[in-house]
């Protein structure tokens, strides 16, 4: 599904290199988790994949189902099936959540040559999906993320994911700022979206999210690349012992 090869990325305005030869393959239908200390480049990777300005790819490639992503505009990447659940979802005052969802969904459908949904069809769909995610109809009427609690923002991201039905979902620290109950709600939402033809890349600091969203593969990332890959037990090991041993094995220190 997603294949990242030897990806090197620096900041556009500074000489700071963030990704240093990252390799990652996420197979169709699998859930991969990426853990790593602060500053390891996890969030940068998610931004670079989704096409945010401010980064320069100096080497390497990233393909989605064989299609090169890095040449595309952000909106084209979305239409190709990539979805990033933001760590900090953005507020858009005055724009209704429904308007936003419908604009996004129809923009993607149009690019893919599908018919746009009418107001009625859309409304039916969004109500159905919101109900499944236990999202209050009131939340759909409010402006995008404005005045939402941390938990509501993250659930709104999952609702967008459910509506847009992407093939490859990246969750950037979706658990940050959530209490236990909110985390369970969000995780239930993600689990409901798991399917044999959809892949996930879950970026997190904490094992506890992975108790809810069970990964097939766990990667440890530091210093702009993947250091170690293993099964779910790798996350448990990190939870217990921290990153020090893994970093040391690659000649890195935790202060890095």
């Amino acid at each position: 599904m997603l294949e990242i090869k030897n990806l090197h990325v620096k900041l556009e305005d500074e000489d700071k290199v963030i990704l240093k030869g990252m390799n990652l393959t996420v197979e169709t239908g699998k859930v991969h988790a990426i853990m790593g200390p602060n500053g390891s480049g996890k969030s940068t990777m998610s931004y670079v994949l989704s096409g945010r300005d401010g980064y320069e790819v100096t080497e390497g490639s990233a393909t989605l189902q064989g299609q090169e992503l890095l040449d595309l505009d952000p909106e084209a990447r979305a239409a190709a099936g990539l979805f990033l659940a933001f760590q900090y979802p953005v507020e858009i005052p005055g724009v209704g959540n429904m308007t936003f969802l419908r604009t996004a969904l129809n923009a993607q459908r149009k690019v893919r040559g599908e018919d746009e949904l009418s107001a009625g069809e859309f409304l039916k769909l969004v109500r159905e999906k919101a109900k499944a995610l236990k999202i209050d109809a009131e939340m759909l009427k409010r402006p995008v993320n404005v005045g939402f609690s941390g938990g509501e923002k993250k659930r709104n991201e999952i609702l967008q994911m459910a509506m847009l039905e992407p093939k490859m979902c990246i969750l950037d620290e979706t658990d940050s700022g959530l209490d236990v109950d909110a985390m369970r709600l969000v995780s239930d939402g993600v689990n409901a979206l798991r399917s044999p033809d959809r892949s996930f890349l879950v970026i997190t600091h904490y094992q506890r999210l992975l108790d809810h969203i069970k990964p097939d593969v766990v990667h440890i990332m530091a210093d702009g690349r993947i250091l170690q890959t293993g099964g779910p037990e790798l996350a448990l090991e990190v939870e217990k012992n921290g990153y020090a041993d893994i970093l040391a094995a690659h000649g890195l220190t935790e202060a890095k």
């Binding site: 505009d73 909106e75 979802p89």
Partner: peptide, 10 residues
């Protein structure tokens, strides 16, 4: 960027 990442053109 948030809009574009959801598929909405610039």
């Amino acid at each position: 960027f948030y809009c574009r990442a959801r598929g909405v053109g610039e």
